[in-house]
Amino acid sequence: MNLSMKKNEDGTVLTVIVDGSIDTVTAPELENRLEGAYAGVKELILDFAGVDYVSSAGLRVIMGADQRMSGTGRLILKNVNEDVREVFEMTGFDELLNIE
């Protein structure tokens, strides 16, 4: 998994482009990288265009990010492929997340 992160000029919008799979090995890395970047962020965008698949370890990180953002802003998932969307649907995540 590769990550690239960028913030807008005033630091309120954080875009994280995820490439690869979010699994039991890579999910903690995503969690750590997000943890260090939340300050001042009102909109967290996870761009999933390059995401191969997400296991439950990845779902937990997404759930954590959603909880983290729910008080002060929002989490948005973009470019979710069909297979990842199916995983969201089977677990009920699709109805609870902002997926664009």
Partner: peptide
């Protein structure tokens, strides 16, 4: 298959 293997192995 990879998701299933991930879950069981984890």
């Amino acid at each position: 298959l990879l998701i299933a293997a991930d879950e069981i192995f984890t």
